[in-house]
Simulated assay, not measured.
Amino acid sequence: MNLDALVAAHSDQWRRLDELSRRRRLTGGQADELLDLYQQVSTHLSLIRTGEADPTLVRHLSTILSRARVTLAGQTSSTWSDLGGFFLRTFPAALYRLRRWWLLTLALNVLAAFLVAWWTIEHPQVYTSMMTREEINAYVGTDFENYYREFPHHEFATLVWVNNAWVAAQAIVFGVLGFPVVYVLWQNTMGLGIVGALMASHDRASLFFGMILPHGLLELTAVFVAGGAGLWLFWSWIDPGPRPRAVAFAEAGRTVIAIALGLVAVLLVSGLIEGFVTPSGLPTAARILIGVLAEAAFFAYVFVVGRRAFRAGATGDVSRTAVGDAAPMAG
């Protein structure tokens, strides 16, 4: 095979294929031309590889063909409209769809936190066995409040955002097994109840709620949403209904991933509140009001935007086209 003759004869076709594969939109005729050129250049590459292949030319044609293959397959790219669709349809619909799971999780954990706090107040040995008298006085007197003020605001906001995202991620990922979700939630709830009891026992309840509520309402709601989603994921393969277990679990997994991605934004908001509002010099009532408004905005997002999206057919899962064909099922 004369490689130079092949290059001279077909270089125009290679350039044309490269040009078409870089276009974001093609007409019907251009799409047909792209397919024809793809087949022809694939043949050229096979011929070159069977002879004395030039590595540089092989790499060049392979790159062109790879780009053309992506174009032919219907490449999608992230756009602002895609992002808007996620936050106006996919994420809120998923939250609304799973509302019973995370609302029940929220209610049970809030109740558990108050029960733990009550028990700890009645049995102070719960914290005296873990901390010395000096440690307790330091924590109640300065350490609890200083925790929110010892770092620069932007660093602290980033720190708590990453930490809370990690806790939420654990609650979701452990949904594969079920019980670990309960353990993660219990650890957080128990810690919250014990700290609240410790502060209340030393007449510092107003400081506790003044520092926790501004960011904690939204932050804990996000964690409970993650926990509820994780438990729903677990239940999807325990009771798949008429669908094969693998299909039910895959669908639930995609919806839970959408929730996980959306919670990153929710936790970013709570992290910003914790980093900039909680330690600020604003009056306690103003800081708590900001937290209440953020929580109210989240519930409005779920029960107004989410309900509308859900009733319009969104479920939190990806589109049917993205999922692909499914085998028919009885029932």
Rank of each mutant, 00 (worst) to 15 (best):
S236Q: 09
L268D: 04
F209L: 10
T255Q: 14
G271N: 06
R245L: 10
A229H: 10
G216A: 01
T221R: 00
S206P: 05
S201E: 06
W237Y: 07
L218I: 12
L220R: 06
L198T: 02
P214K: 05
T255F: 01
L263C: 13
F208E: 06
L267S: 04
I212D: 01
H215L: 11
I257T: 12
E251N: 12
A246R: 15
A197C: 00
G230W: 10
V247M: 10
L218T: 13
L261P: 03
M199P: 05
L217Y: 00
A246P: 02
R204A: 14
A229F: 12
F224D: 05
V247S: 10
G227S: 14
R245M: 11
A258L: 06
L261D: 02
A197V: 00
S270V: 09
R254V: 07
A252M: 15
G241L: 13
A252Y: 09
M211L: 15
I259A: 05
L218R: 09
A222K: 04
I238T: 10
T255L: 14
L213K: 05
L267K: 07
G271C: 04
G227L: 15
P244I: 05
F249E: 13
G210T: 01
L233I: 10
L233S: 12
P240A: 07
G196P: 03
F249A: 15
G227Y: 13
F224A: 05
G227Q: 15
L218G: 10
L220W: 11
L261I: 15
A250K: 14
T255A: 14
D239S: 15
V256W: 08
R243K: 14
G253E: 09
I259G: 05
R245G: 05
L217W: 00
W237S: 13
G253Y: 07
P214S: 04
M199F: 05
M211Y: 11
W235Y: 13
V256A: 13
G228P: 08
F224S: 03
A248K: 11
G227M: 14
M211G: 04
L217N: 01
A222G: 10
T221G: 00
R243G: 09
A252T: 11
P244F: 03
I238Y: 08
F234I: 09
L220P: 03
L217D: 02
A252V: 10
G227R: 15
A260H: 12
A260W: 15
V223R: 01
T221N: 00
H202C: 08
G227E: 15
H202D: 10
L218E: 08
L263M: 14
L231N: 02
F224W: 13
S236P: 09
L207I: 02
M211Q: 10
H202T: 06
A265P: 01
V225N: 02
L220I: 12
G210M: 02
